[in-house]
Amino acid sequence: MSNPVFNQIQAEIGGNDVVLFMKGTSSFPQCGFSAAVVHVLSHMGVTFRDINVLTDPALRQGIKEFSNWPTIPQLYVKGEFVGGCDIIREMYENGELAELFESKGVAQAA
């Protein structure tokens, strides 16, 4: 864990139940794949912390190494990496994402 960005990432995913590393912000996504995940989370009524990797090249590269995952967006729930856009969409469609939030005690809109 020599990369200083890793500490920052660890603090974010440790301090927030749901964290989305994305391109752009939740109100202004700058990539269709990031926008799709924002849409899913918003639709489910899940509160999340959005982190815009475009504002920080070290973070943009660092999160890929931290997660061992080469693409963005990336979703973390209670400190655990869940996946990128394809996985989130698939889990949303078959109900697994709602189950995950429920099992982790993350509030969703009824």
Binding site: T71, F81, V82, I87
Partner: peptide
């Protein structure tokens, strides 16, 4: 898992 499968491809 889904994550493992995608990692294999990546």
């Amino acid at each position: 898992s889904r994550v493992e499968r995608q990692r294999m491809i990546y």
